[in-house]
Design a protein around this nucleic acid. Structure first.
Length: 310
RNA sequence: GGAGAGUUGGCUGAGCGGUCAAAAGCAGCAGACUGUAAAUCUGCCGGGCCACGCCCUACGAAGGUUCGAAUCCUCCACUCUCCA
């Protein structure tokens, strides 16, 4: 019996969690989350987190692992996920990775290059410049001087990447573009069986619209109100789709209809970005989710096929 | 019945004689993605082409003024507000 991890990918709303659960049941698997919002405690409804009951039936890992106001990033994720996956395999079980943050997934499967991590002090200095008039242009010019390669590759308006590149330069004295030499990082991708769920766009959109409405009905705003009482609004997950809009309702900034509309809009855009990412992903085995075919059966077939030799 | 306001590309909405195939936003499409990633960003977006330029069709309809009109005039259609 193999312990090769299975990755379930696909845009939001295609049924990844359900499939993962069923696979876990029949393969003796344990679910490992790679969703950047489901890792936060208390952010349940808006992140479509598996319920307590389903989590009681099959082991679930990396859900509710951190508080909203604590520092977290892809590297920290990769580290913990790696440990969890190793542990599962060591027990002769099989990790079933489910989620939607493909950047996290990549960090886990490929590893991130050795590189200085975030530095709050430096970050503040950079941010101070960014907030001045024409600040972002200034930062980009600065970057272009110290690290021309990155200056060319990163768009001036892409403030996150400009800031990070400068941060790496300021903390290490080396351009970020030099930290990435091949061979230095974990170049080998972890061996997994990757299954992607996809759905016809119009159908997906209809489903997503419905799901967003359902989240509001299920109490997303109340949940958010409670979370806002515990964490500052600037906490990362309050920027997530659904939570940002629900927080705006709580603060009396917008009405429910506008919030739902905005959440739907962002959800659709998110699903699209996910598909763009996934199209470039290698070794993905796709399952077209339709009304009549059972994705579970298809997934089992794919798994048998790709692992038939063992 | 009377007095106004309006009709612009899939939607919202600028433009108010040339530099307008028509700002901006949304939606759509494609893409990027090296420690904020449900984030952040890029490109395309009337049609056609032997495409960094040309052609065609376009700003409710039809006429007209003008070298030139989405922009001015006439008329028709429809929408809206107000007064009866």
């Amino acid at each position: 019996m193999t312990t090769t991890p299975i990755v379930i990918a696909g845009p939001t709303g295609t049924g990844k969690s359900d499939l993962a659960l069923r696979l876990a049941h029949s393969l003796g698997g344990e679910i490992v989350n790679y969703d950047s919002v489901q890792i936060y405690r208390g952010f349940d409804i808006g992140s479509a987190k598996p319920t307590a009951e389903t989590r009681a039936r099959v082991p679930h890992h990396l859900f509710d692992m951190i508080d909203a106001d604590s520092e977290f990033n892809a590297s920290a994720y990769a580290e913990r996920a790696r440990a969890v996956c190793d542990d599962i395999a060591a027990r002769g079980r099989r990790a079933i990775l489910a989620g939607g943050t493909f950047f996290y997934l990549r960090a886990l499967l490929h590893g991130l290059p050795e590189m200085p991590s975030r530095d709050a002090g430096i970050r503040e200095r950079i941010r101070a410049i960014a907030n001045r008039p024409r600040g972002s242009a200034r930062l980009h010019r600065w970057l272009s001087i110290v690290d021309p390669r990155s200056g060319e590759r990163i768009a001036p308006a892409d403030r996150h990447r400009v800031e990070r590149a400068l941060e790496v330069w300021l903390t290490s004295g080396r351009p970020i573009s030099e930290w990435e030499r091949p061979g230095s990082a974990a170049a080998e991708e972890m061996v997994t069986t990757k299954i992607g769920l996809r759905m016809e766009r119009s159908r997906l959109v209809a489903r997503l619209d419905e799901r967003v409405a359902a989240m509001y009905e299920a109490g997303l705003v109340d949940e958010t109100r409670g979370l806002l009482a515990r964490y500052p609004r600037s906490a990362r997950p309050f920027g997530a789709i659904g939570y940002a809009e629900a927080a705006a309702i709580v603060m009396g900034e917008i009405g429910v209809d506008a919030a739902i509309g905005e959440t739907r809009r962002r959800t659709r855009a998110y699903a699209k970005r996910q598909m763009t990412w996934l199209r470039a992903e290698r070794n993905m085995q796709w399952i077209d989710v339709t009304l009549r075919d059972d994705p579970f059966a298809a997934a089992m077939r794919l798994i048998e096929l790709s692992e038939g030799s063992d």
